[in-house]
């Protein structure tokens, strides 16, 4: 990994990563969090911050297909990884079936948890296309929602799974 130092001797690292299919080579500090790289440098503000402690899951992104709290991941650790954020879920303006299902099931209120919820649910449906209700609840249990009581979110995920071949 290429490094350069600033006047104070603080190192910067050049990392390579793919975000939503696009390649980026940002220069970052050792303490830069993945969530801040995405939000502040790449302007992908669909990834939210609710706690910066790994409690709420609003910052969930997919890292090589696995859901992670991007506030707990150093940008350095994302070197060489493929990241999917909420902005990368719809394809060519066409909503993903999970996104459609969230709309149809009134599973969105303030929407702050929604990006993280959808990515956690997406990871679940990729590894388990027909989950049971307890499996859905377990998969989103790291994503807090203060608005919905999870009722319609769970319904939306189950509905989207049902629609899957």
């Amino acid at each position: 990994m290429q490094t350069i130092s600033d006047k104070q001797g603080v190192k910067r690292y050049l990392i390579n990563l793919t975000v939503n299919g696009d390649e980026y080579s940002p220069v970052i500090k050792g303490n830069t969090l993945l969530v801040n790289l995405l939000r502040d440098e790449l302007d992908l503000t669909g990834t939210k911050k609710g706690c910066e402690l790994g409690d709420c899951g609003s910052c969930t992104v997919l890292m090589d297909g696995k859901p992670v709290d991007s506030c707990l991941v150093l940008a350095l650790e994302a070197d060489g990884c493929e990241i999917i954020t909420i902005e990368g879920v719809a394809q060519h303006g066409e909503l993903d079936r999970l996104q459609r299902s969230f709309i149809d099931n009134a599973a969105i209120q303030c929407g702050y948890c929604t990006p993280g919820m959808i990515l956690s649910a997406k990871a679940l449906l990729t590894r388990n296309p027909h989950p049971t209700e307890p499996e859905v609840r377990a998969a989103i249990s790291g994503n807090l929602c203060r608005c919905t009581g999870y009722v319609n979110i769970v319904k939306a995920v189950l509905d989207a799974a049902e629609a899957t071949e």
């Binding site: 669909g46 996104q99 969230f102 009134a106 969105i108």
Partner: peptide
Amino acid sequence: KSKPKIDARVKVTGQARYTADLK
């Protein structure tokens, strides 16, 4: 009638900008 929320699409796609998202 259960109309879909007027802001549902911007919220499921990450387009909705909250105050901390503004630069």
